[in-house]
Design a protein around this nucleic acid. Sequence first.
RNA 1: CGGGACGUGGCGCAGCUCGGUAGCGCACCUGCUUUGGGAGCAGGGGGUCGAGAGUUCAAAUCUCUCCGUCCCGACCA
Length: 565
Amino acid sequence: MRWNSFFSPTLRDAPSDAEAVSHKLLVRGGFIRQLHSGHYILLPLAHRVRKKIISIIETEMDAIGGQQVQMPTLQTASMWQKSGRLESMGDIMFRLQDRHGTEAALGVTAEEIFAIAATEITSYKQLPQMWYQIHTKYRDEARPKSGLLRVREFTMKDAYSFDLDEDGLDASFKHQHEAYTKIFERMDLKAIPVEASSGNMGGSDSIEFMVQAEAGEDYTVICNGCGYGANIEKAVSQLDPIADLEAPEKPAKFSTPNIRTIAALAEAGHAAENQIKTMVYVIDGQLTLALVRGDHLLNEQKLADATGGVTIRQANSEETVRLLGAEPGSLGGVGVTELPILADLALRGRSNMTTGANENNFHLSGVDIERDIDIKEWLDLRSVQNGDRCSECGDLLKIVTTIESGHIFKLGTKYAKTFGANILDENGKSRTVLMGSYGIGVERAIATIVETHHDEKGIIWPITVAPFQVVITIVQTKDEESVRIGEEIYESLSEEGIEVLLDDRDARPGVKFADAELIGIPYRITVGPKGIANGVIEFVPRATGETALIPIPEVTSYISEIVRT
RNA sequence: CGGGACGUGGCGCAGCUCGGUAGCGCACCUGCUUUGGGAGCAGGGGGUCGAGAGUUCAAAUCUCUCCGUCCCGACCA
């Protein structure tokens, strides 16, 4: 490709509303333009990168027996109704009507369709199957952000496996896991597989592939000691035991004027770790108390997972007052019998604690949690905090921000059963197939690579996904000798199958160098009178910036060698 | 959905307080000079000032409504 006719509108300044590094660089480099919030135009540079990533994914999916298909993205609401996700997806789903008034939706994900397609499988002899598509997904995100990292319309590779039994599902899951490892390696993303919640997808054995990056939106707990890793929505840790003084025979009410926070109560002499924090939630319409230790944070996803709740929100103060008789800040579980009370495991066995008295400006001390509160269930509800110890090895845990780059999980019969994906086994008995679901966001991968591969000058693409592998910068387009040699190298490298961008633009060298560095092409060849006088060109890897002088006749073999390895 | 900010040529911004008919830098076009790290000079093109309504002799500027965009939080396979 000749830069003279290649469209790559680079900018000196990033748009003022771009925050994430990848967002700024992709816009400045002329890869993308925003159409409106959450929808981006992919210009030629981005499209080339996207194709590279898709090709890597396809190769690895095919290598584990994946068969590519293409599903409709416009789907009837009734299909989603059947799986129950028309409701549970909530506002994330774009909904519309056709001319007959039939309710429809745009594809958010495709478990339903694949389960329907799987009804075509009739015999155990046809199993296992692994199907995938690389297709557009639509999600009406509450807040699209950070350029390509969170958008409303994007390309996803979504794969679905179909197996006869658990062993088969385990094998399919393992194949995907291994394929993901290869895919991320090939894109040079250091993706850490971590335990995760499967959210409203339903299922078990949920593993997310997380890439550490400042712009990441997920919190991941990592142990340097043993390699334990888990999404904060799932992570566990061990706590130092607390030796409580014996509680008095019964709780004592005491006056706490204007004390409404854990911190204020702690200042008044009741250490946060000796307090019970009482939170009121509405879980699928049911008001519920959730208790955690005063210095702990409740994780709503854990609450949702533990209760199987689909819609969860904190109760408003009106509901709270109506049911408990007090406002947040003075709430507690003592004496509450009409609401289910869920308590975090860290509270188990604790006594002599302090909690709200369900009367504004009063608290109770000397509370023995098991004796005084009618706990319905003990659950893991708390978020791991920085400095907690690993429950595997005891080492310190740390919390890092990460980008969720891939997610694989086992669905079991959840969708297969609903849509009747049954087969006959070797005994002629009808069985429901077991499904797994495996996703990677393509444009998010583009952004994630940029987040982790850049410097102050711009992007540094890994060669495997770079829009071009080599750029030839002709320093002086008016110098005929330079142009001739540049063209020659361009021709011979292109014949070698190398993707070359020939910078034949009539621009000043500084502009050309800056552009080449901004868009991040891994290798640059500089052709100019200075080098030609000595029979050489300059070769500069983008990553190191270290210039090597290569004799002109050796250029093609030298570069092909490097690009291929 | 709660909180905050912003909307003026493609990008970055000024002008708004105190109404008088739109300007700067970059980018773009033409010419000349220049050319190894974002050139110089000269000339030029491009903006219903987010939209609508109102106040006024007069609105980018004041008022109201709406729309859009970003940030924080909530939420998020």
